[in-house]
């Protein structure tokens, strides 16, 4: 090993920072979009309408059985074709992430709602509350409480997954690190640095999850 060259990292910092900002932006927008679409999917699956829940279930199972990279490829191809004009790599990737994450979020929400004991609904009924009131005041608050740690974990996974936009050369933190690595010929420094940065961010996230879990548990 021929000496670890920190100066490469230092001089690339502004470029890497831009990449990291893109990673964060993509993560945040994908969480918002994914949660929104995920709620719709979860509602559709748990609705009484057979056809609607079947469509939603098919979508969720379909997305969950293919790799994210393939989903990214799909939407890179489909989005411009459907819209009839190119929208740029960022929006194609964002749409791919939203569509992908929504499938996972909807499952988390469904599991959260199912996790509320049946006795709670019966207790609600026995005190004379109607369906919507039981959902609003009894089921959803408890379900949401149970869901929070899982949702944050999924957000950490999503942040890690954004590194996959590398396959379409969108300049996120991973791609930026890789560009510097190759142009400067400093593969060891750049990939280890990328690993450390991702680790620090994601580990901080995991610690938050653990704190949330112990709060939910009490």
């Amino acid at each position: 090993m021929s000496g670890f060259d920190f100066s490469v990292i230092v001089s690339a910092l502004p470029f890497l920072w831009e990449g990291l900002q893109l990673s964060f932006l993509l993560t945040i927008l994908a969480i918002i979009g994914g949660l929104g679409f995920g709620v719709l999917l979860a509602l559709a699956r748990m609705s009484g309408f057979r056809l609607l829940s079947l469509v939603a279930a098919t979508y969720v199972n379909l997305i969950r059985s293919v790799p994210l990279i393939l989903v990214i490829f799909w939407f890179y191809f489909l989005v411009p074709l459907v819209l009839g004009r190119p929208v740029g790599g960022f929006y194609s990737a964002l749409i791919a992430f939203v569509m992908f994450e929504a499938a996972y979020y909807s499952e988390i929400m469904r599991a959260g709602i199912k996790s509320v004991a049946k006795g709670q609904v019966q207790a609600g009924k026995s005190t004379g509350l109607g369906y919507w009131r039981i959902q609003r005041h009894i089921v959803l608050p408890q379900a949401f409480r149970n869901m929070i740690p899982v949702l944050v974990t999924q957000a950490i996974i999503l942040f890690q997954d954004t590194s996959l936009v590398f396959v379409v050369s969108l300049r996120d933190f991973m791609t930026a690190s890789s560009i510097v690595a190759r142009t400067e010929g400093r593969l060891v420094e750049m990939y280890l640095f990328a690993a450390v940065v991702y680790f620090v961010i994601c580990f901080a996230g995991s610690l938050t999850v653990r704190r949330l879990q112990s709060k939910v548990a009490t």
Binding site: M174, V188, Y191, L192, A195, F199
Partner: peptide, 14 residues
Amino acid sequence: NVPLLVQLFVWYFA
């Protein structure tokens, strides 16, 4: 806590 892609590159390149 490190993305799989980064790990793959570390194993392959670093």
